[in-house]
Computed example of a mutant assay.
Amino acid sequence: MDEAQSNVVAVLARVPVSSIEAALPLYKRLAGSDEVRAFAFGGVRLAWVGPFLLLASADGAVPFRSATIIVRDVQLVVSLVQAGGGVLLDGPMPGPNGQRLIARHADGNVFEYIEDVHASG
Rank of each mutant, 00 (worst) to 15 (best):
M1Y: 12
V8S: 10
V8Y: 06
A10N: 03
P16S: 00
I20M: 11
A22F: 05
A22E: 14
K28H: 05
R29G: 02
L30V: 06
G32H: 08
D34G: 09
D34V: 09
E35L: 09
E35K: 13
V36E: 05
A38F: 06
F39G: 09
F39H: 00
F41Q: 07
F41Y: 14
V44H: 04
V44C: 10
L46H: 12
A47T: 06
W48Y: 02
G50T: 11
F52N: 02
S57H: 04
S57E: 04
D59T: 13
D59F: 07
D59M: 00
G60Q: 11
A61V: 15
F64D: 14
S66W: 05
A67Q: 01
A67T: 00
T68N: 10
I70L: 14
I70G: 01
V71E: 08
R72Q: 03
R72Y: 00
V74S: 01
V74L: 12
Q75D: 15
V77E: 10
S79I: 06
V81M: 12
V81W: 11
V81R: 11
Q82A: 04
Q82R: 15
Q82K: 15
Q82E: 15
G85D: 08
G85T: 02
G85P: 09
G85C: 10
V87W: 00
L88V: 06
D90E: 15
P92I: 00
P92A: 03
P92S: 03
P92N: 04
P92D: 11
M93T: 13
M93K: 15
P94Q: 10
G95N: 12
R100E: 14
L101H: 00
I102N: 01
R104T: 01
A106Y: 06
A106P: 11
G108L: 05
N109L: 15
F111C: 04
F111Q: 02
F111K: 12
F111N: 10
E112T: 12
D116W: 10
D116F: 13
A119W: 05
S120C: 04
G121V: 09
